[in-house]
Design a protein around this nucleic acid. Structure first.
Length: 446
RNA sequence: GACCCUUUCGUCUAACGGUUAGGACACGGCCCUUUCACGGCUGUAAUACGGGUUCGAUUCCCGUAGGGGUCGCCA
């Protein structure tokens, strides 16, 4: 029998990283096995269900590159894939249970499933054999007085109807599985193979909630993370190739995505490390793709950043690419390159203040830069000018680089200096120097 | 509270019962660099605790402690 798995989120308004990882693992397993990945929207709670919430899930999955074979916006043999539209199917299954005498009705109209009250052993692919004692549990409600059905019931009915063979989901569902198995048996259906994956927690081991930074896939989309980097990082939470490799493409992960390579304990989410993965992927990106990402991000920013409408924008991006861990960091670099009037940063001024003879150095530097003929204004010539200034001042050229950086960019950190100066051009560089020298002098002198 | 899962550096994780317990993020140092970074090298840092089993335990078993999960007419 061919593998069929599903990701069954309820539209709560965003796609949680935990949910995204669950989807990713299901997808990986389906693709590895040459099976089918189904997306089923569990939107039985009409009050919480909105179009925007649906979109957040669909967009998030698409962004991560997790394409589904059956589901919303895609046809399939088990349509519809929204639980809210499957009422007639649930009614029919419900009737089977009633006819078989598995149910009883409460005074208020709610219907419960009469539990066989057995100890169930769940053969979980990740957790091993898990004993679930159902003998003392109250009977589960499967239908509310208003006729709507409860999660456990619809979940099992759909898994039967959609011929799901493997259920890969968060460990928080492990006890629900006892209830689910009871229902499968009552319907005379074989339960699927279960694999409960450990949870993703915050740094402080608390549950990640919408508020936590990075908890929503939306966060990464807005910041223009590279989906491959995020997926790579997510895979490493609860799974490992066991050979010290970390930067792995999805195609490298797939063949190694085996149950025995799964971890059993919860993982704490580390946004820093996720950023590091992003930086690794960003550095390897080709220029056109990088430009594309930056521009997409720039267009979303209000107010717009310096350089956004400047024809020189694309020529500046190669200077920036190797310097950043995330696309939003282009902001500070664009200010450096395009906003000559930006004031000198506090940390730059402080660092500069620690250097001796600063006024003389800055002036000497400026003088030598002015001496470079405009047509010769290239990195090499600029370097020679700095060297000449250094010689006159009897200091090492390196001592002048930082001050020069501050004059040109107003910042203590940033792009490669010489290429940046070449990019700025002589006139602009000198104009900036003239404007910033006063800001760089000690307060007593100004 | 009951039940289930879980426990290796701060974090993610490696280690057929025999390793100086490895890698990565973060943090510090050094080198490279005429600046800022990248990079390279390097340092600090872990087998929760107590019992077994074994010649030998991070690894297997039991207990304790910690963490997480579940105990809905939420999903």
């Amino acid at each position: 029998m061919s593998v069929r798995v599903r990701f069954a989120p309820s539209p709560t308004g965003y796609l949680h990283v935990g949910g995204a990882r669950t989807a990713l693992f299901n997808w990986l397993f389906a693709r590895r096995e040459g099976g089918v990945f189904v997306l089923r929207v569990e939107d039985t709670d009409a009050a919480r269900n909105t179009a925007a919430a649906q979109a957040a899930i669909v967009d998030g999955l698409r962004w991560l590159g997790l394409d589904w074979d059956e589901g919303p916006e895609k046809s399939g043999p088990h349509e519809p894939y929204y639980q809210s539209q499957r009422g007639h199917i649930y009614d029919a299954y419900f009737q089977k249970l009633v006819d078989a005498g598995h149910t009883y009705t409460e005074e208020n109209g709610a219907v419960r499933f009469r539990s066989p009250r057995e100890v169930i052993v769940l053969p979980d692919k990740i957790c091993g054999d898990v004993k679930i004692d159902r003998t003392q549990e109250p009977d589960m409600t499967i239908r509310r007085p208003d006729g709507s059905y409860i999660f456990h019931f619809v979940n099992v009915v759909d898994d039967i109807e959609m011929k799901i063979t493997h259920v890969i989901r968060g460990e928080d569902h492990i006890f629900n599985t006892g209830k689910h198995i009871e229902l499968f048996r009552a319907f005379g259906a074989e339960p699927p193979v279960y694999a409960h994956i450990p949870l993703i927690l915050n740094e402080d081991a608390s549950k990640m909630s919408k508020r936590d930074q990075g908890a929503s896939i939306q966060y990464y989309m807005e910041k223009e993370f590279l989906p491959a980097a995020v997926a790579n990082y997510l895979c490493l939470l609860g799974w490992s190739p066991k050979d010290n490799r970390e930067i792995l493409g999805i195609d490298e992960i797939m063949p190694l995505f085996l149950w025995e390579n799964m971890n059993h304990s919860n993982a704490k989410f580390d946004l820093e490390k996720c950023r590091w993965f992003n930086a690794q992927y960003l550095a390897k990106l080709d220029a056109p793709s990088f430009d594309h990402l930056v521009i997409a991000w720039l267009l979303k920013q209000t107010p717009s950043l310096p350089g956004t409408d400047d024809p020189r924008l694309v020529s500046a991006l190669p200077l920036i690419q190797p310097k950043i861990k995330g696309i939003p960091e282009v902001a500070e670099h664009l200010i450096m390159l395009f906003d000559g009037g930006a004031p000198v940063a506090e940390d730059a001024r402080t660092k500069l203040a620690g250097q001796p003879d600063i006024a003389k150095r800055l002036e000497t530097l400026k003088t030598h830069l002015e001496a470079v003929p405009t047509p010769d204004w290239k990195a090499d010539a600029i370097q020679e000018a700095v060297a000449a200034a250094a010689k006159e001042l009897a200091v090492k050229p390196g001592a002048l680089m930082f001050p020069l950086r501050v004059l040109a960019t107003g910042q203590a950190h940033g792009v490669d200096l010489l290429p940046a100066l070449e990019w700025l051009g002589k006139a602009e560089t000198l104009q900036r120097a003239a404007a910033r020298i006063p800001q760089c002098l000690p307060a007593s002198a100004s």
